[in-house]
């Protein structure tokens, strides 16, 4: 499984949404499933999936799927 598929799976599982909804354009708080509570589950899922520890500033900045990819790139997770 490549990193795009892993990321899509993490978003889908953490937010309990269909994988087809996980697009670069999907934004935090744009759907009811991606609220602040779900955001913490998402962070945990991404950390577990990619075996990383996100900085607090990155958790706060993770405002979309595209932004998540940009942030993960800082942790050597390439897309």
């Amino acid at each position: 499984m490549n990193n795009n598929e892993l990321l899509t799976g993490a978003f889908s599982e953490a937010l309990v949404i269909d994988k087809s909804q996980v697009t670069n354009e999907l934004q935090y708080n744009s759907i009811k499933e991606w609220d602040s509570v779900a955001h913490m589950s998402l962070v945990a899922a991404l950390e577990e999936t990619f075996d990383i520890m996100l900085d607090t500033d990155d958790i706060i900045d993770m405002s979309s799927v595209l932004k998540a990819k940009e942030i993960l790139a800082k942790y050597d997770v390439k897309f």
Binding site: M40, A44, E47, T56
Partner: peptide
């Protein structure tokens, strides 16, 4: 607490 909570929630 902020970082411990993340670990404990998992």
């Amino acid at each position: 607490s902020r970082i411990a909570a993340r670990i404990m929630m998992k």
